[in-house]
Design a protein around this nucleic acid. Structure first.
Lengths: 337, 337
DNA sequence: ACTATTGATGTGATCGTGCACATTCCGAGG
DNA sequence: CCTCGGAATGTGCACGATCACATCAATAGT
């Protein structure tokens, strides 16, 4: 059987044009839905496209327009549940809009590493960046680099000049703190996240605000690193001073580690000390005791970030979302005094 | 101050050529380190490159060579720790080799969705694919699509024709099962993962093998879906039948849910029933009781996958790795009868 | 009835790179 | 001294899309 001498070449815009009996430019217009195309011509072109199973070559398009349909994710997360879930939903939402997603992980959050990661994304000609990282630093670096692409962070920054996007961490943090206060606690500690994470700051502020509103004295927050191991360590340390009856940990992982530390030190949660977390990771409902926490809709968060970013990219009106309502999930780890 | 009328255009290969006093082709040769370049010419070109801060345009290169320096990740994971950690290390390793990573999430694991995801990656002209997904199905679809790119799975497939890569799940599963047997357990259940996941099958086989070697009768495994919620549900169900003294759950999440289910049913772990998991996720060491499990080096796993894939892409000798040693982490959740 | 305007389409240039082929130079072998 | 082969470099085209501009027909305005 004679084999076709032609290499199985993928069809180009010109092949479509030939089949539809129009010029390549007309096909291009159909693809970018230009207004001035007769409906009949358009359908003829669309037919040809489906017959040939034509797909536009993104490299060629990127070359001439000098922008891509890629968005970059700048991630500094070590596989925590929240950011990971958001990344998945960012990816889904972006894909639904015809964008693909390139992720760059930050091995460390030094300005150098951040700069390098952004340079990497710039080299890929991404048309926008979503940052899941210590926002303050990233924004500083981004601003300094004057990269020409819009960027969005998944977190709220008060008065930042970048595009940001609220998950209302502050309200959530208030909620849990008020929950503890309502249970009769007055000596409440806060196990905070790393200093340059906006979430850490917002959650801490929510805690401080709620305490102040209730006229309670606050303790200086303890700085953690989001990990369960740190929580465990902190639990051991805190067991020595017993000047508190409740702890609000800035995320669930630290809360779980903390409870472990307390357990090992002979402190019973919630009888001796109440513990609450933040995020509502999947295991939060199953650890012992089950963990009171604040539920966040990471999926919706990711979706919204993409909506904002794409509007920025396309120069459209940037949608303004109401803050996502944080939901208090009351479980066993918190109880009344 | 007069502004430069020239748009700040990024330098191209021709700008470099002009500055170095050579032709653009010579620059191209330097970039792709062609053998026939005089060292002196080469260094002149390299100087010009660094002076202009020139970076090759990937779109243009992709257009002419019809391949990219992108690799695609096909992920069907819902934010579990293991796969997520692997993805991060894949990304790191790929970047170190000059490749970027595009991730596509599978909303569901139907052949259609898998096909669509692969088509998406093909349209991106990725030069290779790493699959973290129900391998059997993905491989079938990939084979059927005859996509021209190499692909690697993070899991072992016995006798598969695709390139695969072992994490020695089987040995790990044997290890925990033997651990339970050594503790004196004879009635050991297995809470397995979904049917079309290779890991699920390997872990189940490891369990069955270890049981057979010890001349113990096995129960038909229970099929789970990797989630903690399912584990909890199973715990409630299993509490009714008390014909076992230990359970090996195919992953930590299910194990944690299971322990919760047992707890709610008044079954004490490990006094009444021992529970072991698989993966050693970060909270495994902190839940109550702390979870005996098998540690996997997800990071190394990702690195190796990239090494294999890149060798395939470059047509080099594909490295053969010894199986990664799984490590048994003995904790509180398992005890002797 | 003539021109201006708009809609629908086509033509050629262009983006930045790699490939095929041409050219130049130089030393070895007859 | 001539030829030949390979090393080192240059010339032009091709990749597949968009963009700027040109063209032509139909319609509207005077």
């Amino acid at each position: 059987m004679a084999e076709s001498s032609e290499r199985a070449r993928v069809p180009s815009i010109r092949d479509v044009a030939r089949l539809a009996g129009v010029s390549h430019q007309t096909v291009s217009r159909v693809l970018n839905d230009h207004p001035s195309i007769r409906p009949e011509t358009k359908s003829r072109v669309l037919d040809a496209i489906s017959v040939l199973d034509y797909r536009p070559n993104r490299a060629a398009r990127a070359l001439v327009t000098s922008r891509t349909t890629n968005i970059g994710i700048l991630s500094a997360t070590v596989g925590e549940f929240g950011p990971t879930a958001s990344i998945a939903s960012i990816e889904d939402a972006a894909r639904a809009e015809g964008y693909s997603v390139t992720t760059v992980n930050l091995p460390e959050t030094t300005p150098e590493a951040i700069g390098e990661a952004i340079r990497q994304l710039a080299r890929e000609q991404v048309s926008g960046i979503v940052a899941l990282a210590p926002q303050v630093r990233v924004f500083n670096v981004l601003r300094g680099m004057a990269i020409g692409v819009p960027y969005v962070s998944l977190q709220t920054a008060s008065g930042s000049d970048g595009v940001t996007h609220s998950a209302d961490q502050l309200t959530g943090a208030r909620l849990v703190t008020q929950h503890l206060i309502a249970l009769g606690h007055t000596e409440i500690l806060h196990l905070a996240g790393p200093q340059d994470w906006i979430e850490a700051e917002s959650r801490m502020r929510g805690y401080l605000d709620a305490m102040r509103d209730a006229d309670l004295t606050t303790f200086p927050p303890i700085r953690g690193d989001w990990t369960a191991d740190f929580g465990y360590f902190a639990g051991g340390e805190l067991a020595r001073r017993r000047d508190f009856t409740a702890v609000f940990a800035a995320n669930d992982l630290m809360a779980i580690g903390l409870m472990h530390g307390f357990r090992d030190a002979g402190i019973d949660v919630p009888r001796d000390v109440s513990v609450v977390g933040f995020d509502d990771i999947p295991v939060a409902a199953h650890v012992c005791p089950t963990l009171t926490t604040v539920h966040q809709d990471f999926t919706e968060l990711g979706r919204r970030a993409v909506a904002i970013l794409l509007a920025e990219i396309r120069g459209e009106q940037v949608p303004v979302f109401g803050a996502l309502d944080p939901i208090l999930r009351t479980r066993e780890s918190s109880s009344s005094r």
